[in-house]
Design a protein around this nucleic acid. Sequence first.
DNA 1: TCAATACATCAATATATCTTGATATATATA
DNA 2: TATATATATCAAGATATATTGATGTATTGA
Lengths: 103, 103
Amino acid sequence: MEIFLKTISSINDETRVEILQFINKNGEVCVCDIEDSFKMIQSRISRHLKILKDGGFLKVDRRGRWAFYSIKSPMDEFRQSILKEISFSDIKIPELNKGCKSE
Amino acid sequence: MEIFLKTISSINDETRVEILQFINKNGEVCVCDIEDSFKMIQSRISRHLKILKDGGFLKVDRRGRWAFYSIKSPMDEFRQSILKEISFSDIKIPELNKGCKSE
DNA sequence: TCAATACATCAATATATCTTGATATATATA
DNA sequence: TATATATATCAAGATATATTGATGTATTGA
């Protein structure tokens, strides 16, 4: 039950669904890319990314001073079906805006 | 987005996941059956059933003074995958206890 | 070594959700 | 028709979650 609810609660938020769809569409991005694209303060983005990671949807790769987030792979069928449903749900996401000078 | 979040938030609660699994296992039950099986007060059960119904998981059939809840059918693939995941998640549910004299 | 950048975390507040107990409504039965 | 039963809904308080601004940590580069 715990794992199920952690997975579900991680996507029970409009901002997180948008971030997830954003990463699913754009591939690996760093925190400041999301911050600049969504025009949200960094602590807010950082918190949501942590929840999505703990929910089993994202992985992080730290390189240099950046943290690159991407869709976790491999991913179980259930989370895949959630990603699919989100991508079918016509979620409005901003354009990718590279705000920092990563790499 | 609205519909997606309504679906997700409807299962973002331990009690509702248990009720859903309970109905999925036992088939059609009335509110007082759930009330007696779960040992929870009626207003609480009633509220959760409404949320699960609005989330697209349950349907109601009112017969006489009873309201019989069951898994909605037909059900879309996404909600089916959620039910499947719940049934795989080893959720503890009480035994069916018929507390009222329905039918 | 110092300053800037990228990110994480914390504390306070705001907002949303859950639980309870009270009350309302509808049906059935004496 | 009066009463009991089954269910729904509401208001108040309790609990959980989200947002913000401040601060902490690690890395890079001057």
